[in-house]
Amino acid sequence: MAQAELAHGGHEEHQTTTGLSHKKLLMWAFLGSDCMFFGSLIATYLVYKNRSLGGPLPEDVFDILTTSTSTFVLLMSSMSMVLAYSALTRGNMNGFRIWLLSTCIMGATFLGFQVFEFNEFVNHEVHFECSHLEDLTKFERTFADRCDGTVDEVFIEHAGLTPRTNLFGTTFFVLTGFHGGHVTLGVIWLLAMFFYSLRKGGITPAKHEEVDLAALYWHFVDIVWIIIFTVIYLFGVFPGF
């Protein structure tokens, strides 16, 4: 076999030193490298945590239930991605296409959640009831001096969070924005595979590794979100962290 292949033109790429494929090694080395990328962004976020000079702060804007839902969607997209790959290796092309497309849809849904969330933050409003000052966050309390009878008992103040507002806004939007960018690239990659798979011979069970590489990337984006969800969102709202 080896002799025959060599004689037919040296397909060395099938006989690597380690027996692993080049592309898979490249992908894993790249993912290790990407860990450093997100590590630096997360370090920046944490170093600047609690150093913003003004609000809004995490406890003002984060909505844990909404973000839990989008986290759930992203986790499920990982499951459907591995089911797509599993279907492909079993030769079930229709199953592959269905699971792949649903992965794309869930990825797009996650991005939709992110757009919604960013939009909410930018248009954030402080709802004020002068009779309930004790429930306010630190940032909201900075408006409390208006409750001296000169304004209405209940008022609404626009206090949006943008990347320019404070250090929290800067670090939060850039970190989650780059994660969102990774998700967007992943959706494009998977969609390209979906359309390519509609072509005859485009994606076949023999080419399962091409899909495996995209899947690895997709799962990596997922595990980065697992960390972001805990460290930025859950710890973010937790007082004293």
């Binding site: 380690t18 990407d34 450093m36 370090a43």
Partner: peptide, 20 residues
Amino acid sequence: DAKLLTWLFLAGFFLAITVV
């Protein structure tokens, strides 16, 4: 999978954790 892939990934992962 092969252990080598795990090491490739963990090198970056643990270094990132340490630097953070």
